[in-house]
Amino acid sequence: MTTSKRIALVTAAPLALAAAGLVHPHGLSMSTAADWADLHILLLPLFPLLTIGLLVPLWHRPRPGIQAAATAAAWTGAFVYSAFYTGLDAVAGIAAGTAVEHAPAGANPGRLKRPLYDVGESLGHIGAYALICAVVATAAALWPRYGARVLPGTAVLLVAGWSFVDSHIFWPRGVWTMCGFALGFALLAWTTGSHSRGRSRTAD
């Protein structure tokens, strides 16, 4: 796969999420509940795809020893993120939106959504921290072969990951967070792709 195709593959999900953030309701109320629930249904398969940005650089990379362990840790972190952040979307997004949308007249939306928000945020925090751990493990797996070349992409991803803990995709910070993921993933894809081609040409 060419480097340009790798970059397109790893940036597709974060850029799509950034675009979704531009139309994401800023709050959940009776008037926004239907859009809130519908949007999170559409987002349900998108958030797990964020991990493609780590899986592509790691593909066929594990070596015996610490690289294999770091790769396994990165894949595990990516799985935990996918599972728990999907839980956030399902509970605080789809469930909360549906509950408020179908609440009886005169009901207090805050009393309906607050318990769901609390559960969803707890799940989302686990997922976001797992993604940060996956970024660190990915850097450790790639370091023996690529060295300091992985640092720029890793640094951008760590900043984006920390922002992701409480920004979701809400405008403005959440949108810029997704753009940060896209940039970090692109840097890793470029580093691993271009360096691999250079090694192949040398071998030829």
Rank of each mutant, 00 (worst) to 15 (best):
A130C: 08
W36P: 00
L46H: 04
E121S: 14
R145C: 02
G110Q: 11
G93W: 13
G110V: 06
A103P: 03
H60A: 13
A95K: 09
F84G: 07
L50F: 04
R63T: 15
A148S: 15
L112T: 01
G97R: 05
L123M: 10
A72H: 13
L46C: 08
Y146C: 12
P62V: 10
S122P: 03
L142C: 08
L49W: 10
G65S: 12
A139K: 03
A107T: 03
A107Q: 01
E121C: 06
A130L: 04
A139E: 00
A73L: 07
A148F: 15
A74P: 10
V100Q: 08
A140Y: 04
A69F: 02
A69N: 06
A148I: 15
L39E: 01
A92D: 03
A140I: 10
A128K: 06
L49A: 13
A92H: 03
S82Y: 14
A96D: 10
L46G: 08
D118T: 15
V56F: 02
E121P: 02
T51V: 06
R114Y: 05
S122N: 05
I94S: 00
C133Y: 08
V119I: 09
G124L: 09
T98M: 03
W75G: 01
G106M: 06
Y85H: 14
A137E: 03
Y81H: 03
A73Y: 01
L58I: 06
F84Q: 07
A90P: 11
E101F: 11
A69Q: 09
G97I: 00
A73S: 12
T51I: 01
G127A: 09
I132K: 12
A73G: 01
W36L: 04
A96W: 02
T71H: 13
A95E: 02
P57A: 07
T138C: 03
E101D: 10
A134L: 06
P62S: 13
E121Q: 14
L39P: 08
L116F: 05
R114G: 05
A130F: 12
P57I: 09
A134C: 10
K113I: 11
Y146E: 02
A107G: 11
A74Y: 13
G124Q: 14
T138A: 08
N108P: 05
L46A: 13
L54W: 08
V80L: 14
V80F: 14
P45I: 15
E101V: 00
R145W: 07
